[in-house]
């Protein structure tokens, strides 16, 4: 396995442990929760303590819904099927389908991020909303970025898990 390494620096040994994998999954859950509650904070603040006329509607939630959908799709794909083309026993169809589904997931995630920026620009930056209400737009961008970060951490942790299983099998 060490002969097939691509980069000069090898992965540190503690990163391959099962402890790092579990901590990564917990952290991903925590980050996703943080994203949801940042957005919920903007909605509750808009209802309860808002001095301005701008209010949170369903449109503000739509980018977060797309980001979460993308996260669900990306992390539902079985990672081992992505490189299945080199193996003879599973045909090329499975890897192709997995890549298409993964592409849809990443498109939904990036679309959610872009939607967050769009909502911020169209509803808050262009009309020139003042700052205590501008926080609602900033929180939209922050929430979508946190969903993306959570997806990355969950993906990396599950890849650690695959390496761990591989080491155990050999």
């Amino acid at each position: 396995m060490s002969e097939e390494r691509l980069f000069k620096f090898s992965r540190p040994a503690w990163l391959n442990s099962i402890w790092a994998r579990n901590a990564g999954v917990y952290a991903a859950g925590g980050l996703f929760s943080l994203a949801f509650y940042v957005l919920l904070d903007s909605a509750v603040w808009s209802k309860q303590a808002n001095p301005s006329d701008v209010h949170i509607t369903f449109v503000d939630w739509l980018p977060f819904i797309f980001s979460s959908l993308g996260m669900l799709i990306i992390n539902s794909v079985e990672k081992a099927r992505l490189s299945a083309d080199s193996f003879s026993y599973s045909g090329s169809g499975v890897a192709w389908k997995a890549r298409v589904v993964l592409f849809l997931g990443f498109a939904a995630l990036a679309g959610g991020m872009a939607g967050g920026v769009t909502v911020f620009v169209l509803r808050f930056a262009v009309p020139g909303v003042d700052f205590p209400a501008m926080t609602m737009g900033v929180e939209n961008i922050v929430a979508n970025a946190l969903v993306g970060l959570s997806t990355v951490i969950l993906w990396v942790s599950q890849n650690i898990e695959d390496e761990y299983a591989y080491n155990l099998a050999l």
């Binding site: 996703f32 509650y37 509750v44």
Partner: peptide, 27 residues
Amino acid sequence: LDLGRFCTGFLVVMGLALPVILAHSGI
């Protein structure tokens, strides 16, 4: 197992985030 850990992490951060949200909105 990972799904269970993800949900547990979600709920723990929810317990921290709920009072902060309520205080930020003046409730």
